[in-house]
Deep mutational scan, measured.
Amino acid sequence: TTEYTFTDDEEARRAIEELKKRGLTFRYEKHGTTWRVRVD
């Protein structure tokens, strides 16, 4: 499991789109302004 942290909404959304394109399994949660994206 790899975890990424983003504080920029645009950056987080781009990363999420990219992961979807690659067909990877991931989860994300947003805490205030911080996004945590975990890739299995």
Rank of each mutant, 00 (worst) to 15 (best):
A15C: 15
T34N: 07
T7P: 03
E10D: 12
E3L: 12
R36G: 01
T33W: 04
E10T: 09
R22F: 06
Y4A: 02
L24D: 03
G23I: 01
D8F: 04
L19D: 00
E29I: 11
L24R: 05
H31G: 03
K30D: 01
A15K: 09
V39R: 00
G23W: 02
H31A: 07
G23F: 04
G23M: 03
D40T: 13
V39K: 00
L24M: 09
T1F: 15
K21Q: 08
D9Y: 13
E18T: 07
E11C: 12
D40H: 13
A12V: 06
R13I: 12
T7I: 06
D40A: 11
R38V: 15
R22Y: 07
A15L: 14
D9R: 09
G32D: 05
T2F: 13
G32K: 03
T7A: 07
Y28P: 01
G32S: 03
V37K: 00
R13D: 04
L24Q: 05
F6Q: 01
Y4H: 04
D8R: 06
T2D: 06
H31P: 00
L24N: 03
E11W: 06
L19V: 03
R14K: 11
L24G: 02
D9H: 08
G23V: 01
F26E: 02
W35A: 03
A12R: 02
G32T: 02
R13F: 13
F6H: 01
R38H: 13
T5K: 05
G23S: 03
W35S: 04
R22L: 13
D8G: 05
I16H: 00
Y4V: 04
E3S: 05
Y28D: 02
T7C: 14
K21M: 08
F26S: 02
E10I: 09
E3N: 05
Y4E: 02
Y28H: 03
K30Q: 06
F26D: 01
A15M: 15
K20R: 12
V37C: 04
Y28E: 03
E17M: 10
E18V: 07
D8Q: 04
T33V: 07
T7Q: 08
E29F: 12
T5N: 05
A12C: 11
W35M: 04
T25V: 12
T7N: 09
F26Y: 06
T1I: 14
Y4T: 03
T1V: 14
F6A: 01
A15S: 04
A12F: 15
V39D: 00
F6M: 02
R22C: 12
H31T: 13
T1P: 12
Y28I: 15
E18S: 10
E29L: 06
I16R: 00
K30P: 01
E17K: 11
T7R: 06
E29D: 07
R36D: 03
R27K: 10
R27T: 15
Y28F: 10
D40G: 11
R27N: 12
V37P: 02
E11D: 09
K21T: 08
T2K: 10
E10K: 10
I16N: 03
E11F: 05
R22D: 04
T33P: 12
F26A: 04
D9S: 08
I16C: 07
E10G: 11
R36C: 14
D8S: 13
T2M: 12
T33A: 10
G32H: 03
Y28L: 11
E10L: 09
